[in-house]
Design a protein around this nucleic acid. Structure first.
Lengths: 191, 191
DNA sequence: GACAGTAATCCTAACCGTTAGGATTTCACA
DNA sequence: TGTGAAATCCTAACGGTTAGGATTACTGTC
């Protein structure tokens, strides 16, 4: 009943991590489509049902850090310095996230995603979810006081900026340019 | 060798339509998840393989008119009157599309989509595809001459407007409000 | 240290979307 | 009428996913 202490949680986290690591390694070695869930489970030395106890789908194995993304995006808004305006704070975090996704080591993963329709569809379906979470904190921020629609639109625009920049030739410049547009859009909603 | 005339194409179209109609009817009657592809095929009196010869996936049965959407969006740009600015033309077409999706008879279909994670993911994965097509015609329009990034961003924003409005309490007002933002964003990219 | 409760894992068998492979029918056109 | 191609069909399988229930591993308590 009381919160469990230690070992059990550590073991669970370790199992999860082992599965994710094994899956990503196999996917990169042999190709996403060529590796089955049964292969991943066998190589990670767990049962198939255990894989699905930790991950909702095969695609989720690739986007293990999904929740991180959403948390960072929303915190960039809620935890920003007291007088920092919204858009620069958002822009800074999106830029950091883009750098993470376009870093040297991420290239093979990105290529794998772009080559798999299933992974692409999954990735794109995450965007709106993140945008909804972001819109919620925008609506809740007393410093902003914009309409729900303005918050929802801005949230989606910010996620768009991320998606576009991750695939752009010059990610940094893309973030700059799109956020100049977002800034203008946001200003146009001032009460 | 020459283009086949008549019956074959008509029969093919009829089969496709019968499958789509049967599928939608069964989905609405019994629920999307409760109806299998084998049920649809049996009720439409075709083989399962025939279903997949016409539709790429079970979800595609629901979004039968997907290609229409993309065509209308791009034509709204390419076929607009010679001196009409981009944003109003786009706004008008998005509004029309939203009206179509929020029309009286569409409510049950929308509810079904919102209740199925698979359908939601599929729908959301169509957005970026449509946005890419729209971005292409924006980039190609000699009247506009903006950067590729500006075109891509504007295209995604327009698709966002559609997605938001379809789910909004007041779709018309939402299109208005979001397009005021898009207008400002677009103006901010003027050369 | 034994014990009860619960969370994590396991095993098996199946369900369902999807596809391969190849046979068969239907149509278009000469 | 015959020929080629397109559409449809049938069967069997593959692979992601889940249900059901057994088993194991940990936690907090007596």
């Amino acid at each position: 009943m009381t919160e469990p202490s230690g070992r059990r949680e550590r073991k669970k986290a370790a199992t999860r991590q082992k599965i994710a690591d094994t899956a990503l390694r196999l996917f990169l070695e042999r190709g996403y489509d060529a590796v089955g869930i049964r292969d991943v489970a066998a190589e990670a030395d767990v049962a198939v049902t255990t894989v699905f106890a930790h991950f909702a789908s095969k695609e989720a194995l690739v986007f293990e850090r999904d929740q991180d993304f959403e948390r960072r995006l929303t915190r960039a808004v809620t935890d920003r310095p007291p007088h920092e305006p919204l858009i620069p704070a958002l822009r800074r975090e999106v830029l950091a996230l883009v750098r993470h996704c376009t870093a040297e080591g991420s290239a093979p993963v990105r290529r794998m995603i772009e080559e798999s329709p299933a992974l692409l569809a999954y990735e794109e379906s995450m965007g709106p979810r993140h945008a909804r979470a972001l819109a919620a904190v925008l609506s809740a921020d007393p410093r902003l006081s914009r309409s729900a629609t303005a918050c929802r639109a801005t949230a989606r625009f910010a996620v768009d900026a991320y998606a576009l920049a991750c695939r752009a030739d010059d990610p940094g410049a893309t973030v700059d340019e799109v956020f100049r547009m977002i800034e203008a859009a946001w200003e146009a909603t001032a009460p």
